[in-house]
Write a protein that binds this DNA or RNA. Structure first.
Length: 503
RNA sequence: GGUUCCGUGGCCGAGUGGCUAGGCAGAGCUCUGCAAAAGCUCCUACAGCGGUUCGAAUCCGCUCGGAACCUCCA
């Protein structure tokens, strides 16, 4: 029996709004697509939250034994700047402002994005396709939609005919976002650039490039560039098939982006593209969505160094990761100094136990105390069932805190290792390590890797031991206090052993 | 204006018809040369008002407050 059979996964599907049992299209294999960043600027913390969410999803799917193909794109062209008449491209605009080639912009911010992913321990996807690398496919599907009568070209631009699609597909435009097409009509504001379109709800598949537009490709309709939504349809179906298992992205992409993806793909391929939609919620600051345009966004570097004006101090990447995992991905999460401080302490606690359990080994009784064995096993079980319950990292962390206490008990002797059977101990130990490191990605942060520093501290520790044995408390306290002052916390064990942690 | 969501103890944040969330902060105790760490104990909330129910923080209605989307946005 595989882990995914033992702990069947449920996912809140945005399409139905309900928690559903997850059954992949092909047993044992999962195809997942996530909308990646538009690389025209530094990624901020809000962006990072979304990628962290799907990092957790892909990690857990793999941990359960699924073989996962995870596709996350890089949008390096195509997002239209507001509703400007020219349909100005964000990357092209930025390039002009900075007097750079568009691809220089793309390169710079892609690298930044990758660096941010790395420091947060967000694993790379299986495939990371770019929009500019799939122009041909985007032209092809646009042509196909024209052939099927679901798109039309006007003056070198091509638009998707939403009304026609809706009429020919069971009024299904809006199934994801819960909008209905009449309301969209009435509520839409006057966009003065829309006279080309037959209907204000139509959206661009291909845009004609204005003479000054620098990112442009030849097409059957003249020189231009692809619309925003079409790239994701092309790249997801190319690598995952016309119907695939999971599509993820930020809540703010639900409409219109994902709604349009469904319409295009269904129109072109005759079947719905996605079986489970997952939307991660926003990171907020004082209750408001963190976004570049609102000016309340944090850069990861500002967070690590504490240079942002709202922060009292810097926080490590793992502290931030822990902080985000403490809430469910579908809830908004409010970002504040106080919350981060609490997270820092909580994370340190889990991290300390991680180090402790790694150093512990079973005292090896065949017959342990059955009650204790049962309690430990049930904690392990809860880790799985909580994660399988719609990736509930918050509940899983609560269990890990419980496990952390038991680990400390083992260390102090409150819970004698002899009373735990060998098999149970190993299961418990590897579960704690795996859920921390593999599933939640909370890698140990320590200086233990740094031999020179660790060795130096060990020398000081042995000096303190000697001083204490000699009852030279003035010296032993000085060693402890001076180390504390530079951020190294010594911890005296009952047995006289001394361990340390770094602030 | 339309659509949707949320309002949990000092703070953050899970949960969701009857069963302890958890973390941080605070109080007490144990351990300790003194501390720290750790362990134990305490602090028991669900915006307001009605209703449904044997029973509601959880379902329904209203009121108040906040947010997201409807336009580029993770």
């Amino acid at each position: 029996m595989t882990l995914y059979e033992k702990y069947p996964l449920t996912i809140t599907n945005s399409l139905s709004g309900k928690k559903e049992r997850f059954e992949p299209l092909t047993p044992g294999f999962v195809g997942m697509y996530v909308c990646g960043p538009t690389v025209y600027n530094f990624v901020h913390l809000g962006n990072a939250r979304t990628f962290l969410t799907f990092d957790t999803v892909s990690r857990y799917l793999r941990f359960l034994g699924y073989r996962v193909r995870y596709v996350r794109n890089i949008t390096d062209v195509g997002h239209l700047e507001s509703d400007a008449d020219e349909g100005e491209d964000k990357i092209a605009k930025k390039a002009r402002l900075e007097q750079l080639e568009p691809m220089e912009i793309v390169k710079r911010y892609t690298e930044d994005f990758h660096n941010v992913m790395r420091v947060f321990n967000i694993l790379p996807p299986s495939i990371e396709p770019t929009a500019t690398g799939h122009i041909v496919e985007q032209i092809r599907i646009t042509q196909e939609l024209i052939n099927k009568g679901l798109a039309y070209d006007v003056n070198g631009s091509v638009y998707f005919d939403v009304k026609k699609y809706n009429a020919t597909h069971n009024n299904s435009y809006g199934i994801l976002s819960g909008r209905n097409i009449e309301e969209l009509m009435e509520s839409g504001r006057d966009l003065d650039s829309q006279e080309e379109k037959r209907d204000r709800r139509d959206f661009a598949l291909w845009k004609k490039a204005a003479p000054q537009h620098i990112m442009r490709w030849p097409s059957p309709w003249g020189e231009g560039f692809p619309g925003w939504h079409i790239e994701c349809t092309v790249m997801s179906t190319k690598y995952l098939g016309e119907t695939f298992d999971i599509h993820g992205g930020g809540m703010d992409l639900k409409f219109p982006h994902h709604e349009c993806e469904i319409a295009q793909a269904t129109g072109a391929n005759g079947k719905p593209p996605v079986r489970y939609w997952i939307h991660s919620n926003m990171l907020t600051v004082n209750g408001q969505k963190m976004s570049k345009s609102l000016g309340n966004s944090f850069l990861p570097s500002e967070l690590f160094t504490g240079s942002h004006k709202l922060l009292d101090k810097g926080y490590s990447p793992m502290t931030v990761r822990f902080f985000m995992l403490q809430s469910h991905y579908s809830s908004t999460l409010d970002f504040s100094n106080e919350a981060l401080q609490a997270a820092e302490k909580g994370y340190k606690k889990l991290n300390a136990s991680l180090r402790t359990i790694k150093a512990l080994s079973s005292a090896g009784g065949e017959t342990g105390d059955t009650e204790i064995d049962k309690a430990l096993i049930s904690l392990v079980d809860e880790c799985y069932s909580n994660m399988s319950d719609d990736f509930n990292t918050a509940k899983t962390l609560a269990v890990l805190f419980e496990m952390s206490s038991r680990i400390n008990d083992m260390k102090s002797g409150n819970l004698p290792l002899k009373s735990v059977s060998a098999g149970v101990f190993e299961t418990f130990k590897s579960a704690y390590i795996d859920f921390m490191e593999k599933v939640l990605g909370l890698e140990e942060e320590s200086v233990q890797d740094n031999n020179l520093l660790d060795g130096t501290i060990q020398v000081l520790i042995s000096l303190r031991k000697k001083a204490r044995a000699d009852k030279n408390f003035a010296l032993s306290d000085k060693i402890r206090d001076d180390l504390k002052a530079i951020g190294v916390q010594l911890k005296d064990g009952k047995d006289g052993e001394i361990t340390y942690s770094v602030e």
